[in-house]
Amino acid sequence: MGASETYRRFDPWRTSPVREESRSQIVESHYFNVDRVALSSPQVGQFERYIVTENDGDTVGVLAMTDDGMIPFIEQYRIPTHRWTLEIPAGHATGPDDKPLDVARRKLREEAGFEASHFAQFTRFINTPSFSTQHTALFYATGLTPVARSGFGPETPRSDVRMLSLDDAYRMAVNGTIVDAKSIIAVLRLYSAPDHVIEEA
């Protein structure tokens, strides 16, 4: 068997090796809930896990690009890590009828101060599969028009927008200046395969 071969094809939906015995919700919020889940398996017996379940669909991020090749990043103060981050505009649904594209349009306008004539979803990923159901859908937005910004959270009442070229954003992702996962994924995805992303858009 060669180094690139495996004993079987990868199947993400094959039979689960554990059995869920019970589940109870212990935290409820507008954004996510937390469940205590009891599980068992023949190998290890019974055990518990705490699972964060996302409400109202995917988190959404927007990698937007102006006609002259600049990408807006938002300066955000993040309370859990007590630090400032540079992030692409992002957010989540405010209700079950709020679709990912609606979120993308709203967050680009509120956080970055742009409207876009075209959006295309170019990737989707699981944020932390070890303890959360959270998925993030990333959109590529073009045909930008400046508009007034309107959305400011209590953590960062007047967050600044920094316009970066793709080359600069790539360097900042690689050297650790940009540490936000969705922003790194978006930048590396565009940098490594720009033609594929642009074709989708």
Rank of each mutant, 00 (worst) to 15 (best):
F152W: 05
F119C: 03
I79P: 06
S40K: 10
H82T: 03
R106T: 01
A93F: 03
T15C: 09
R124W: 01
P42C: 07
P17D: 04
Q134L: 11
Q46V: 12
V37M: 08
V37A: 04
S117V: 06
F32K: 07
E5R: 11
S165G: 12
G57L: 08
V179E: 08
P194G: 02
G143F: 00
R124S: 14
Y140K: 02
T133R: 09
R189N: 14
D67P: 00
Q25C: 13
Q46W: 10
F131M: 12
Q43E: 15
G176N: 01
I178V: 02
V187W: 06
D168W: 09
V37N: 03
I178F: 05
G176W: 03
G143R: 00
V103W: 02
Q43D: 15
F10Y: 14
V103D: 06
I79W: 06
R78P: 00
R106C: 02
A116H: 03
T81Y: 11
L190Y: 03
D68T: 10
Y191I: 01
K107Y: 14
M70E: 15
G153A: 07
R19S: 10
A104L: 04
G151R: 00
L164N: 02
H92P: 00
Y7F: 10
M70A: 10
Y170Q: 13
F139S: 04
E20G: 11
G113S: 01
R36S: 09
R9C: 06
Q121N: 12
F47C: 06
Q134C: 09
R83P: 00
S22Y: 11
V197Y: 01
F125G: 07
F32E: 01
M1L: 15
I26H: 02
Q43N: 09
H135L: 13
N127P: 03
V34G: 08
V37D: 09
R105A: 13
D58M: 05
D102L: 04
Y140N: 04
F122T: 03
S29H: 08
A120F: 00
E48V: 13
E111Y: 05
E21Q: 14
G176I: 05
I71T: 00
S159M: 07
Q134Y: 03
R36G: 04
S40A: 04
R109S: 15
I51A: 07
F73L: 09
S24L: 07
V52F: 13
R49F: 07
S41V: 00
E155A: 12
Y7A: 05
A141M: 05
E5I: 14
S159W: 10
H82A: 15
F119R: 06
L166T: 01
V161Y: 03
F122R: 04
R189S: 15
L138G: 00
M65C: 07
G151D: 00
R106D: 05
A181M: 14
K107I: 13
V161I: 01
L63Y: 06
F32Q: 10
W13S: 12
H30P: 08
G2Y: 08
E110R: 06
L188F: 10
L138V: 01
E87G: 04
R149A: 13
P42F: 05
V179N: 08
Y170L: 13
R158V: 15
T59L: 11
M70N: 03
T145M: 13
A120C: 14
D195V: 09
M172I: 01
E155F: 11
P80Y: 10
